[in-house]
Design a protein around this nucleic acid. Structure first.
Length: 496
RNA sequence: GGUCCUGUGGCCGAGUGGCUAGGCAAAGCUCUGCAAAAGCUUCUACAGCGGUUCGAAUCCGCUCGGGACCUCCA
């Protein structure tokens, strides 16, 4: 079976073939650590975490590079240059690097909560100023950039004359060149479509570096090109990021890298869609963001309760990464319940064993159905990472699993091989590929206490002392522990 | 204004022209001391109008609605 990936560059699903057999180089645009991450940011990191995990599952050795943007860029190109990081730092009376550190730590904490695998390399923009300057010099030498007042701009018009500028984002170069909209302070640029490779720093600009063109700071797009080139080479396999980065960020990256390295940088461009609220993109400019800390604590007017990182992760997995996903408290509540049910079924599944002592009578139809549905996991995943379809199959299988447990269906009607396949399929997908986790295991002492309480309750019930038995059940419920009377007389329990 | 995406049942969401996605909610039933959990059943939708086709949620056209990008943006 071969993996098919939707390539934004060609707007088609293409068979994935890595440049170096057995190896994959993947670059994903990481966070700008000048503020707290919100729900929208979680999507690419979780999406590409799944991509990374799946490629690994398929046997590839993946070098996953995700940058940290810690260099302050201009707030709005052309306007009085102001350092995003630096400006806020003054307000908060912090060193820029102190601020950067704080939000980097917070970001790492969030990634840990989401159970995202750490990237192989997590380079910072400030740590690669030299590489960026070197790259700009190369572009200048090639004749595709020009210097004005200590700033360097990329000559888009010249590039477009011989290259396909706008292909990735579906932009028409003439439109870009002819757009009548006037922005202030654009006089330096020869053309409106040009973008900065290096910006001369105004005196109040805190973050600044010495360069051949004077003190300044790198343009927004160059860091990704420089770091991707350094760690993945002139041509690598996958470049990922949010759809909103397609233009101008990724388009510019292609232009820079192509001139510098004489190579289209990435074979496959993957873009995740946005998370929306009431149909509108979640973003700072819309003032509708829900920070991850707010999500985890439930401390936000739009939230009815706190939501765990795994609920969020599951929520994201239930849709396809290229579709918009509409956030809502009710939608998250649904995901929370669904995930709980699925995970409990998974735990039950892992404890199931074939118990037949004599030759079992196989239910061929059920066997085949289970085998087919589990085998579809890979099939769906190969089809541009259709995680939602896999979950749909899992829910159908969950009913069967629960029926096995409740003895509504005799476990012995399926073969040991089928059960093993089912167990392996669930484990591999839920844990290894989807990166989901159940609650942290309970301590031995709590297990012991629960055992005792369940025992006392059973005794009370046998004496028809329902006052006592209900008291135990209700008090535990208040503590967030749910008792479940199983069909076979056993009592199981779970933290809610 | 330009470029592009999108409109699925109460809600969230899969959907490659023909076969019930799935989840949550709701209702009924089974089980249960009661409940919860679990299982089973019900709710059969594709914005509107035309067209192509034996057959369309899926292709084409128009209309209406929503959104993204064109500026920092996941």
């Amino acid at each position: 079976m071969s993996l098919k990936v939707h390539n934004s560059y060609t707007r088609q699903k293409e068979e994935f073939k890595s440049i170096t057999p057995g190896h994959v180089g993947m670059y994903v645009c990481g966070p700008t650590v000048s503020g707290e991450s919100h729900l929208g940011h979680a999507r690419p990191y979780i999406t590409f975490d799944i991509v990374y995990r799946y490629l690994t599952y398929k046997g590839y050795k993946v070098r996953y590079v995700r940058n940290i943007t810690d260099a302050g860029h201009f707030e709005e190109e052309g306007k009085a240059a102001e350092d995003k990081v630096g400006k806020k730092a003054i307000l908060e009376k912090l060193e820029p690097m102190e601020l950067v550190q704080k939000y980097t730590n917070l970001f790492h904490w969030a990634m840990l909560q989401f159970n995202c695998v750490e990237p192989s390399i997590e380079p910072t923009a400030t740590g690669h100023i030299v590489e960026q300057i070197t790259m700009i010099e190369k572009i200048l030498k090639e004749g595709y950039a020009y210097v004005v007042n200590g700033s360097v701009y990329f000559d888009v018009k010249k590039y477009a004359a011989s290259h396909d500028y706008g292909k990735l984002s579906g932009r028409i170069i003439d439109d870009l060149l002819e757009t009548t909209r006037e922005l202030e302070g654009q006089e330096e640029k020869r053309d409106r479509a040009d973008f900065a490779l290096w910006k001369s720093a105004a005196p109040e600009h805190i973050m600044r570096w010495v360069s051949p063109w004077g003190e300044g700071f790198p343009g927004w797009h160059i860091e990704c090109s420089a770091m991707a080139t350094k760690y993945l080479g002139a041509e690598f396999d996958i470049h990922g990021g949010g759809m909103d980065l397609q233009f101008p960020h990724h388009e510019s990256e292609i232009a820079q890298s192509t001139i510098c390295n004489h190579h289209n940088p990435a074979r496959y461009w993957m873009h995740n869609n946005m998370i929306t609220i009431n149909g509108r993109k979640m973003g700072k400019s819309y003032n509708n963001v829900i920070k991850l800390t707010e999500l985890f604590s439930g401390n936000h007017p739009l939230l009815t309760q706190a939501f765990s990182p795994m609920t969020i992760r599951f929520f994201i997995l239930q849709s396809h990464y290229r579709s918009t996903l509409d956030f809502g408290s009710t939608a998250l509540e649904a995901s929370e319940k669904a995930f709980k049910r699925l995970w409990e079924a998974y735990e039950i599944l892992m404890k199931l064993t074939i118990t037949a002592t004599r030759q079992p009578v196989l239910d061929v139809e059920l066997n085949d159905k289970i085998v087919r549905m589990v085998n579809e996991f890979d099939e769906f995943m190969d089809d541009d990472f259709s995680t939602a379809k896999i979950l749909a199959n899992m829910f159908e299988l969950a009913s069967t699993i629960n029926s096995f447990k409740d003895k509504l269906i005799d476990i012995n009607v399926i073969s040991a091989e089928t059960l093993a396949l089912l167990q392996k399929g669930f484990k591999t997908y839920l844990e290894d590929i989807f990166g989901l986790k159940g609650a942290t295991p309970n301590s031995d002492s709590l297990e012991g206490v629960m055992h005792l309480l369940i025992d006392i309750r059973r005794e009370a019930k046998s004496k028809k002392d329902y006052a006592t038995s209900d008291k135990i059940r209700n008090q535990l419920s208040r503590l967030g522990i749910e008792l479940k009377d199983d069909k076979d007389g056993n009592v199981s329990w779970s933290n809610t």
